[in-house]
Design a protein around this nucleic acid. Structure first.
Lengths: 295, 295
DNA sequence: CCCTGTCATACCCGGCGGGTATCACCGCGT
DNA sequence: ACGCGGTGATACCCGCCGGGTATGACAGGG
């Protein structure tokens, strides 16, 4: 009631964002406070202050738990992005601080790649880049299926190999490297393994072979198939005749004798991109991108 | 190859970022402090703390003034982005707070358009959108030549019409709307006005007609021509025979009798895009984009 | 009913962000 | 050469606010 409209530019500290994001993710003040390493009352107070400062109701406190309002959803998303940006600022500054050359910052690149991605492309890229004149040391950061975006956003990586449609290129600069089709991966002895081609619908409807489920941003879509954590596990399950999977053509390079690959007619093509944070101005990065597009 | 030990994750408050950005932009602690509405000593101390926390030297204090180190340049750029993200979080949350509909946030869109942009496209877009089922109220925010990117980044706008090569689409999602050539705009009586076509080199080298200079991000490139602030001024100067300008085809809609437009053979085409912050999930926005791409 | 688990309130304290006064240092003017 | 102005750095103090502990209000469940 006192400072009703204190609003003219109150820039919102990252501490407040961290607090809100924690609460919004946990939907529970106690757990959020624990995660933040603090007590619950000051956290409650901080969120209240935040709501008053924004003049917006962010959470609906039902006696039993907490729910996000529409504005809360927005702040959760935007707040995560802002926190990522701040974290990226710290990481990139620290990295630039080591070797201090005013013209072109950092002579080291962190490249994020799916652990399950095609090894061949990566190998060719690294080999070609290593002999480039402007090349820098490249640290390869192997990650899970959908982590590249986060790594790039929060500064843990400088550049990534991404695969649409699984990764989103939103918010990054990117160049297309290659396009490939997809194949159904099934046990060699299965009746469908003899087919020349298959459709997605056929693969999905095999009664004795539930389609394997990959994690998307840490969570698994509901379904009958097994939850896949890594490529070896998937290969094993297919060899055992327990599941079928839809994978890019390049997965053929790691097929077992017990596997069969059948081209899919209507699966979306998988496009490999090299992506980096918008507005990057590192010479080493530009050189890597150039090398990649020329491979 | 292993990442070095980052210090125990000190997430960097936006206050510190504001301080550093101010100092980095002013390159002067006194002026920066004044701009921040505070005294100089605490600002010095804050920057020192920041440098110690990051373990990086950001500024080179020469007795006379201050210069940025390489790491400082990085932090300036990244810090601005992070501050924009935080500001955007505040603005978008406030806007979402008004009408609280948990499914689709905000039923109002702010569209940023160059004041000098083609009126026709905008008119068609707004008319077509108004009759769409999922449409929202659209506030048109007229801005200068290069402000759309900042408006979109810091949340003052939800969507923008941009024109490459002047605007950069880096960091945004976008769709292409139209492509047009460019023409030379010169006084009707000028000898070159009778030509069928011209080349950029010819336009640049007219001795009595220096090429007009548009601001790029608030600053003017050096050159002999007059500095242009708005379309009316440009039209006047051309009509007076004082300058020549290179403008998109669509500028023909506002030609005066005293003007002549001659197509350029080698000018880069101007592409109009509709762009919005990556990861926007507003239904109203999606509908606007769909409308735009269809007309 | 009481017990449990939730978030909110009340109150206190210490740290730190910010202000004032001052210093150390250099370039420059006469 | 010397003082002067202007730079950023240091010293010190204080008030605010972020955070902790204790407790309250209120719902659901045994």
């Amino acid at each position: 009631m006192l400072s009703a409209v204190d609003s003219p530019e109150t820039p919102l500290e990252t501490r407040e964002l961290r607090y809100f994001v924690a609460v919004a993710e946990e939907l529970h003040f106690g757990r959020a406070a624990e995660r933040l390493g603090m007590a619950q009352p000051p956290l409650s107070r901080a969120i209240q202050q935040l709501e008053r400062r924004l003049g917006v109701c962010l959470l609906e406190r039902d006696r039993r738990g907490v729910r996000l309002t529409g504005a809360g959803e927005v702040l959760l998303q935007e707040g995560r992005a802002a926190l990522d940006a701040a974290a990226a600022a710290v990481r990139r500054t620290r990295r630039a601080g080591g070797a201090d050359s005013p013209g072109g910052p950092r002579d080291r690149l962190v490249l994020a790649v799916k652990a399950a991605a095609s090894h061949e492309l990566l190998r060719k890229l690294l080999d070609a880049y290593a002999v480039e004149p402007g090349s820098a040391e490249v640290e390869v950061l192997l990650c899970g299926m959908c982590e590249q975006e986060e790594l790039l956003r929060d500064g843990r990586a400088d550049v990534a190999l991404m695969h649409t449609p699984w990764n989103s290129l939103a918010g990054f600069d990117s160049e297309t490297l290659m396009t490939e089709g997809q194949v159904a991966l099934l046990p060699a002895g299965h009746p469908l393994a003899a087919r020349e081609t298959l459709s997605l619908a056929e693969v999905r409807d095999v009664p004795d072979l539930p389609l394997a489920r990959w994690p998307t941003h840490g969570t698994y879509a509901p379904g009958p198939g097994p939850e896949i954590h890594n490529q070896t596990q998937l290969a094993q399950l297919i060899a055992l005749g327990r599941t079928v999977a839809v994978v890019p053509d390049s997965a053929r390079s790691w097929l077992w004798a017990e596997h069969a690959a059948v081209p899919l007619t209507d699966a979306p093509p998988v496009v490999t991109h090299i992506a980096w944070p918008a507005h990057s101005r590192s010479l080493a990065l530009a050189c890597l991108v150039r090398t990649a597009t020329r491979l």
